[in-house]
């Protein structure tokens, strides 16, 4: 077992892990941060996307020991301390960008990474950026719409509701 220590959502977190422990397992099982989900085992679905040192990564495809010393952000740290949703989260609710909620944490974290790098993406850029996030419920329409709205762009041309 190896000791790891990292900052998760602004707080120091540490624990003992095996070499094979994935970052997502450390977050879910050791830290109890169960908002990050596992939807596949081939690094495709993106339900596990978190930020490591400001970059979106798939927490199912990174070893916990490799995150030693890193700054990790998960879905649990996105809303304000008083529970107010951030702009992206609020846009997902406003535009019905989620149904079962399982892919949602990864979608929100991917959207945050996109808008950090590209604050005014086109619809095509949003769709391509989500290539690593699979949603089975929404058909993506309202996810794309929510991200466009969160970027502050006019979504009037996108079909209603």
């Amino acid at each position: 077992m190896t000791q790891v220590k990292m900052t998760v959502n602004g707080k120091t977190a540490s624990g003992h892990v095996e070499g094979r422990t994935l970052l997502v397992q450390f977050l879910r099982e050791d830290l109890g941060l169960t908002g990050t989900h596992v939807g596949c085992d081939t690094s495709q679905c993106g339900a596990c996307v978190v930020h490591v040192n400001g970059q979106a990564v798939k927490a199912c495809s990174m070893l916990a020991v490799e995150a030693d010393g890193a700054d990790v952000a998960t879905i649990e740290g996105q809303a304000a301390a008083d529970g107010t949703l951030n702009t992206i989260q609020q846009a997902f609710q406003d535009h019905h960008g989620l149904q079962c909620g399982f892919c949602t944490p990864g979608m929100v974290m991917s959207a945050a990474a996109l808008l950090k790098d590209n604050p005014k993406p086109t619809v095509a850029e949003v769709r391509h950026y989500l290539d690593g996030n699979i949603c089975r419920c929404t058909g993506y329409h309202n996810i794309v719409k929510a991200i466009m709205a969160a970027s502050g762009q006019d979504i009037g041309a996108i079909a209603a509701e």
């Binding site: 690094s43 798939k58 495809s61 990474a113 996109l114 989500l130 290539d131 690593g132």
Partner: peptide, 9 residues
């Protein structure tokens, strides 16, 4: 290649 999260690793 792949998707953004994969490209970051």
């Amino acid at each position: 290649i792949g998707d953004p999260a994969v490209r970051n690793r």
